[in-house]
Nucleic acid binder design. Structure first.
Length: 407
RNA sequence: GCAGGGUUAGUGAAGCGGUCAAACACGUCAGACUGUAAAUCUGAUGGCUUAUGCCUUCGUAGGUUCGAAUCCUACACCCUGCA
């Protein structure tokens, strides 16, 4: 992998990541294809959308169909028939989402209000309805039971890297522990040190350096000293790229702070990936802070659940100005496209009324059309962001979108 | 014509004297979703100037009872046997 910065505008930059499977213009949004497919889409769709890459998942592909089988087929990309760049996540996120996250019903950005109250209940063991977690963490690694069949397994830094080398993605991630916004500082610090140890071991286990680029992952939640310490340590390791991971706090402001603490002290020449983030607003604010690549399930997941992106001119929902719930009754007779200015397949061919009808009827096409639209929208947005960085006008673009950011 | 069974909120269907504005399912409406256990999940769903409140509802009309969706009578419609 090679990374070249092509322009700079304040803290933002554009660049090109060159992988064995092609180039990625950055900042870029990488759609998530957990089980070696972007849900509802095929590779022809991904090509037509100009998807820059696909991010698959180590945990899921390890359980099924298994890394040895994928290796026989020449890696995830070959296996799925995708000739573009690929990423694999390390499985670290599942340690969280199927562990603490499942147990206490939290995601990586806490949306629980009031978060402090929930946090104190969880920390004092007063959470009223904990569920049985599937992962148990120790210093050396993680024991877990498969969510598919209950079988017992163990991941360590070494096994994660070994699996990822068999999966063969162009960009791979160190095995890490993603904490929750509800963990206290003491635990977060312990987890951070564990992640540092695992990162070091991930680097040692990483042997396929010609073809695969390893990214270390910065942890530390929303604690300034921890994030800075973690950034220094992760950047001291010999990895081609750096990722910001883990819990990103209790609000968007926390996330801004985290990026402000970490990115200015990472080496400029290494590409920076922001794990699991990618709502419309975030793509602007994190690009402005110097993030180069994103991955996120949001555009594809909310599409399947009936939320589709709209530009500021369309209005959007009162609570979320960048999307509308296309299932709503008020669109039943709407003869316009999802977004007037959108040139995606869905908007060129179908009305809001038709898409709403497909959702109401439970038709699979509804999810596919919505996914095509949302990804086209996000990829177009990233192109606009890159153009704005080159033209030194990102701030203007953001104000056109009504994004108020102090940066 | 005789005998038996049935008629409950948008639909199907529980309830068979008080704790019933009425279970449950579906439907409908609204909301959530950020390194995907997610075509998932949550809430609302008789009306009201939103309430440990009032009003109207369980085929129709009467009746019994302190009290009826629940018991009785008549009527209407539907189903099943026998003529």
């Amino acid at each position: 992998m090679k990374f070249e910065i092509t322009s700079r505008s304040k803290r933002a930059r554009t660049g090109v990541i060159t992988t064995p499977h092609g180039m990625i213009e950055t900042p870029a949004f990488i759609p998530v294809g957990t089980k070696a497919d972007v849900k509802t889409l095929d590779i022809k769709d991904l090509h037509e959308l100009k998807a820059p890459a696909v991010l698959a998942n180590t945990y899921h592909l390890y359980l099924r169909p298994g890394p040895d089988l994928i290796e026989k087929f020449g890696g995830v990309g070959e296996f799925m028939g995708w000739d573009g760049p690929t990423f694999t996540d390390s499985g670290g996120f599942q340690v969280f989402s199927l562990g603490f996250g499942l147990e206490h019903g939290v995601s990586k950005v806490s949306n629980i209000f009031p978060a402090e109250e929930k946090q104190s209940r969880v920390l004092s063991g007063q959470d009223p309805k904990p569920r049985k977690k599937l992962f148990k963490i120790d210093e050396d690694g993680v024991n877990f039971v498969s969510h598919l069949d209950g079988s017992k397994h163990r991941f360590t830094a070494e096994t994660s890297i070994d699996i990822q080398q068999k999966l063969g993605a162009d960009i791979i991630f160190a095995f890490d522990e993603c904490t929750s916004p509800l963990h206290d500082k003491q635990y977060t610090e312990q987890a951070m040190f564990r992640t540092h140890d695992w990162a070091k071991r991930s680097v040692q286990a990483w042997t396929n350096r010609e073809k695969q680029a390893l990214y270390g992952i910065i942890q530390g939640d929303a604690y300034e000293d921890l994030r800075k310490k973690s950034t220094e340590y992760i950047c001291s390791l010999d990895t081609p790229g750096i990722a910001v991971g883990g819990s990103l706090g209790k609000s968007k402001n926390d996330m801004f702070d985290i990026l402000d603490w970490t990115l200015p002290i990472t080496p400029e020449e290494r590409p920076r990936h922001l794990l699991g983030i990618g709502e419309i607003e975030d793509l602007f604010t994190a690009s402005a802070r110097g993030i180069d690549t994103f991955d996120c399930v949001s555009p594809t997941r909310i599409a399947r659940n009936g939320s589709v992106y709209v530009s500021p001119a369309e209005g959007g929902n009162p609570k979320n100005k960048f999307n509308i719930n296309i299932r709503a009754q008020k669109y039943a007779q709407d003869s316009g496209p999802i977004d007037k200015d959108c040139t995606c397949f869905t908007c060129l061919n179908h009305t809001r009324a038709y898409i709403r009808h497909l959702f109401a009827s439970g038709e699979l096409l509804a999810m596919r059309l919505a996914t095509l639209h949302n990804l086209h929208f996000v990829f177009g947005l990233m192109e606009d962001i890159r153009g704005a960085i080159r033209g030194d006008s990102l701030k203007n673009l953001m104000s056109e979108w009504g994004i108020d950011d102090k940066i």
